Computed example of a mutant assay.
Amino acid sequence: MAHAVSTPGTPTGARTGPGPGTPRRTTPDVLGKKTHLLVKWAMPVAAALVYGYWVASVRRHGGPITTTNLLYGFMSMLAFAILYFAIRAVGRRLPREGHAALWGAFAGSALGFIYSGSGVAMFTCVLASLLLAGAVTAALVYHYYTRHDAQDAQEARAARAARTT
């Protein structure tokens, strides 16, 4: 049976990876800053356009396209985009749970608004909205806690390394 042998100069059980002062290897960023900026603004605008079209499509119930229908879809798109950018700006200042709850409420409200235009019972609409809001909130709480805890641990390691040197 083979056993691991400790490296000379290191105590048994110590990690033999890069030391606290050496930078960690990360995956390379293949996109430039301009591409990240473009995606940061283009994705919400594209999502708002799709949302506005979807609202207009649900509202007309398969009938002809009218000016009122187009205006309704455009106003929905504008409201979606404004709320998205406002939540993105405000959410960073909130604690993790508040940030996640804000995005969950946004997703649930967006679904509820579209679903209510289809003519279903209000109870069904509210239930679907609450289920989506709860799922988005739970997923984002998990995401924020795992990502922020890793960042906090990394910052603590860097602070310890700075104190020891």
Score class of each variant (00 low, 15 high):
residue 151 Q to A: 15
residue 137 T to H: 02
residue 66 T to W: 02
residue 103 W to L: 12
residue 17 G to V: 02
residue 113 F to K: 10
residue 148 H to K: 10
residue 87 I to P: 00
residue 112 G to E: 06
residue 139 A to G: 15
residue 142 Y to A: 09
residue 133 A to Y: 08
residue 134 G to F: 11
residue 18 P to T: 10
residue 149 D to N: 13
residue 92 R to Y: 07
residue 105 A to K: 02
residue 83 L to F: 15
residue 37 L to R: 14
residue 104 G to Q: 00
residue 47 A to T: 07
residue 112 G to Y: 01
residue 118 S to V: 09
residue 149 D to A: 14
residue 87 I to S: 10
residue 82 I to C: 07
residue 49 L to S: 06
residue 130 L to I: 07
residue 91 G to E: 00
residue 21 G to K: 03
residue 44 P to V: 08
residue 148 H to L: 11
residue 67 T to I: 10
residue 18 P to S: 05
residue 38 L to A: 15
residue 31 L to A: 13
residue 81 A to F: 15
residue 122 M to N: 08
residue 148 H to G: 13
residue 82 I to P: 07
residue 39 V to H: 01
residue 156 A to C: 05
residue 23 P to F: 06
residue 92 R to F: 08
residue 114 I to W: 04
residue 71 L to V: 15
residue 133 A to D: 05
residue 70 L to M: 09
residue 18 P to E: 01
residue 24 R to G: 11
residue 144 Y to V: 06
residue 91 G to Q: 02
residue 84 Y to K: 02
residue 109 S to C: 12
residue 63 G to Q: 09
residue 23 P to S: 08
residue 44 P to G: 01
residue 68 T to N: 15
residue 50 V to W: 08
residue 80 F to E: 03
residue 69 N to Y: 08
residue 86 A to F: 06
residue 98 G to F: 02
residue 24 R to L: 14
residue 130 L to C: 13
residue 115 Y to A: 09
residue 42 A to H: 03
residue 59 R to S: 14
residue 136 V to S: 04
residue 144 Y to D: 02
residue 93 R to T: 13
residue 49 L to P: 10
residue 51 Y to D: 05
residue 105 A to W: 00
residue 148 H to V: 04
residue 100 A to W: 03
residue 132 L to I: 14
residue 151 Q to V: 12
residue 110 A to T: 09
residue 118 S to D: 12
residue 131 L to P: 01
residue 87 I to Y: 07
residue 101 A to Q: 00
